[in-house]
Design a protein around this nucleic acid. Sequence first.
DNA 1: GTTGACACTCTGCTTTCCAGAGTTGATACT
DNA 2: AGTATCAACTCTGGAAAGCAGAGTGTCAAC
Lengths: 112, 112
Amino acid sequence: MALLPALDPLLHQPVRTQIAAYLAGRGEATFAELKRALAATDGNLDAHLSKLVDAGYLESRKEASAAGRPQTVYSLTDIGRSAFSTYVTTLSALLPSKTETNELLKVAAAPR
Amino acid sequence: MALLPALDPLLHQPVRTQIAAYLAGRGEATFAELKRALAATDGNLDAHLSKLVDAGYLESRKEASAAGRPQTVYSLTDIGRSAFSTYVTTLSALLPSKTETNELLKVAAAPR
DNA sequence: GTTGACACTCTGCTTTCCAGAGTTGATACT
DNA sequence: AGTATCAACTCTGGAAAGCAGAGTGTCAAC
């Protein structure tokens, strides 16, 4: 039995954490915008996006945009938003805050 | 050029984040204690610990303990503590806080 | 000397990560 | 119509990471 809470492995990965954080902050974003913001390659970004879509965390929508070429817009689903929220909460519980010791770790710690 | 800050891949991994957080909260811990807290297998835990030791984030010390069997005690080095602190700061900047929108993401966002 | 725990190593397997090339589909241009 | 361009997705191959479990050496207790 683990005493420390598990971190969603789908979200706890550099590229995917960035994607989720970006979308949580912005609401939605195009593939190109994400590519630029994360400095990721096409293949790699698409692989991570697909993984999140497959998990039901993201949804994509094609936009035959008025002012240009067709684009794909990504956004968090309710499931994704919820998972991300849980993830952030778990992290907050796990990581020490700046000024005080971590309550969770005090509790989890075995008596010396 | 990435607009989002990079997350130290050494720390941004479920098991290693847990190790670092645990040690940051507790100061030090034995192998057995970590194993119990993380519910990890020997091999896996050792692999992650070794990786952190190799990176200079952790140091280990053998304790021919007075009250029992010899054990290995792990603790964060100054480098490790500093890296973890940077990691936490980066995460805080990246993740939305509960009540307000994320300033970093606003700045990073391209004009529509 | 046997046992048992601890920590470390090793092995094999599976999964993940990543870059770059290639493909498809839609739009813009002439 | 034909070509060019760009977006996004697919595919491929290779490298690295993650993981479990078996095995090894060491030490202490009995």
